[in-house]
Design a protein around this nucleic acid. Structure first.
Lengths: 157, 157
DNA sequence: ACAACTTCTTAATATAGATTAATGCTTGCC
DNA sequence: GGCAAGCATTAATCTATATTAAGAAGTTGT
C-alpha cells in the first residue's frame, strides 16, 4: 500500500494482467475500460477523487479491464489479498452493486438520449473534464451519435 | 427469517416497496425485473435454486425491481437489517459485482446473437425452464429478434 | 372437447444508431 | 508561421433491431 503520482496517459493495468491491485484516487481522474474484438473501447467507469477503481473479479484471475490515467493523478495502490478483501468496507461493496444494478437497467431500457441525460445528472463534474468521445464510450454509443443527441437536446429547448 | 412456499405467478416485491427483504431460493425459480415508462419488462436476473434474489439498493429506500415467481418455489425470506448486511458473506458480494461487471461489458460491446450465445453457455439449466420471451427480456431484445437469432444460429450450423 | 388465452414464429416496414467520409478546429512541434 | 495529428461536428448511407401484424401451435379453464 503506497502512494504514487502518475501522468496522464499512463496505463496502470491491462486486460489479462493478474488481478491483484486496487487504486484509490486521491486527486486526478482514472478510468477503467474494456476493448472488444474489433478494438473498440467501452468505458466501464470513471474514477474521480475519492473513488476506488479496480477489476472486481476474483483475485488472481486475469483482468477483464484496462485502467489508465486521464488527468495527472495521485493514487494509492492497494495489493489485494484475500485477507485485505475481507476487511473491505461492506457498505462500499453494496454501493457499487447498487450503481451497477442501475447501470444494467439503464443500458437495457433507455435510449441514447436518456442515458446522456442521466449521465450529466449523475456526473456533472466529469462531463466538464473528459473528451466527448469518452462520454460516448461510457454511454455505449459512438461520438457521432452523441454529437447528434446533443444537437437535438439544444434545439428542443 | 422464515421459509415459505410460493406459487407460480406470485409477486413478492414491487417497484417502490420499501427495500428490506432478500429471498434465498431453496427450490423453484424466481426472477427480478424492472418495468420502464412504456410498461416494458426488462429481466435483471433469474434466481434458480441456491441463489439469493434481492434489490441491491440501500436498505430502506424504495425498490427499483419487481420480484416474482416463475415456478412454484420454496424460499427463505430474510429481513434485511443493517446488522444482517454486515454479516453477509463478502465473497458472495464480490461474485455478484463480478457478474454485473461482465454483464455491463457485454451489454455495451456485444450484439444480440453474441449475448444469446453467452447466455446459453452461462445458464444452460435456465434456458430449458423459462419461456422465450423472458430470455429475450434478459438479453435486452424483443422476442421477435430472439426468434430470428435462433433461426440464424440453426441454419448456420 | 371447445373456447379463450398465451406463446412462438415469420414477414413487412420503420427507426435508432453505426459507419463512412468530409470539414473545420485546436494543439503541439519544427 | 506553417504543418501534422487528433478531436468534434455534420451529413449520407447502411444495418441491426424494433415495431406491427398475422397466423400456427400450445395451454388452461369450464
Amino acid at each position: 500500500m503506497k502512494e504514487i503520482t502518475v501522468k496522464k496517459g499512463q496505463i496502470l493495468q491491462r486486460t489479462g494482467d493478474l488481478n491483484n491491485k486496487a487504486y484509490i484516487v486521491k486527486s486526478g481522474l482514472l478510468r477503467s475500460y474494456s476493448i472488444d474484438e474489433k478494438g473498440k473501447e467501452h468505458i466501464f467507469m470513471f474514477g474521480p477523487e475519492g473513488w476506488i477503481i479496480s477489476d472486481y473479479l476474483p483475485v488472481g484471475q486475469p483482468c477483464d479491464l484496462f485502467i489508465d490515467v486521464i488527468e495527472d493523478s495521485t493514487i494509492i495502490v492497494i495489493e489485494k489479498t484475500y485477507e485485505e478483501i475481507k476487511k473491505a468496507e461492506v457498505e462500499k461493496l453494496f454501493r457499487r452493486i447498487s450503481v451497477l444494478q442501475k447501470r444494467v437497467i439503464m443500458l437495457m431500457s433507455s435510449s441514447a438520449i436518456e442515458r446522456y441525460e442521466h449521465f450529466i445528472e449523475t456526473y456533472p463534474q466529469i462531463v466538464q473534464r473528459v473528451p466527448q468521445r469518452m462520454i460516448a464510450s461510457y454511454l455505449g454509443i459512438t461520438p457521432e451519435a452523441l454529437s447528434k443527441v446533443k444537437g437535438e437536446r439544444i434545439t428542443k429547448k
